[in-house]
Amino acid sequence: MHTIVCIKQVPDPEIPPAKFKIDPVAKKVIPPPGVPPVISVYDERAVEAACRLKDKHKGKITVLSLGSEKATDVVRHAISMGADEGYVLQDEAFENLDSFGTAYVLGKAIQKIGGYDLILCGRQAADWGAGQVGSILAEILGLPIITLACDIQVEDKKLKIKRILKDGFEIVEAPTPAVATVSSEIGLPRLPAGVALMLARRKQIPIWKAKDIGADLSELDPSKVHTEITEIFIPTRERKCEMIPGATPAEVATNLVSKLVKLI
């Protein structure tokens, strides 16, 4: 069983909203100073899903991250969790790609690696959250896709995937190889052991450029972009919170109830 997991490094989404700043002219988010970027939350769950399959069926996990050279950090994180190999896809031509460009580059790298049974992505990135790369990747590779997976089982080269619906679940059966996107409902990711962390730090993480994966640069030409962001903004909220007075919890509760009486 060989699983390839696509992961992304993102600004830490857990920072308090007050520290969240944007540059509306550059249409970029200003990373909060001193807060290191992290692996995107759903992608970490995808690594966890791959590790659970490896726990059960043995085999191999390869991780791929398209980003800056610093993305070696998230690849190492995945390796410390249980992945075997990892690559960073970094090239000037890979900057500012839309979902199609990202899926194209990942697809090229996946074709180079080859010999896979399952490709996992997070359901969406924690930053731009376009929620399309996994599906477009499946289309490029001509594979079935199962989105929003919360449990993945493999038996006789057949996948049985539980996926999230608004008011329940469904079970989908699909042949391998296939692509699945993983949702947070799969459960908490494992904490790497100290030894694993140390070994991951020593691991060589190759950086692949466009030429290493045979990417056709004309495919990434800005004139071929499918979507463009014309503006980003932080919504203004003018709500003023009325603090409920009271010297004791009982007083506060009484005052709140009298405020809410009309409402319910």
């Binding site: 989404p13 969240f20 930053d127 731009w128 959250g129 463009e228 014309t230 932080i234 919504p235």
Partner: peptide
């Protein structure tokens, strides 16, 4: 985008 911290206009 960014978990609802901001919004983007896309064309």
């Amino acid at each position: 985008i960014f978990g609802g911290n901001a919004y983007a206009k896309v064309v």
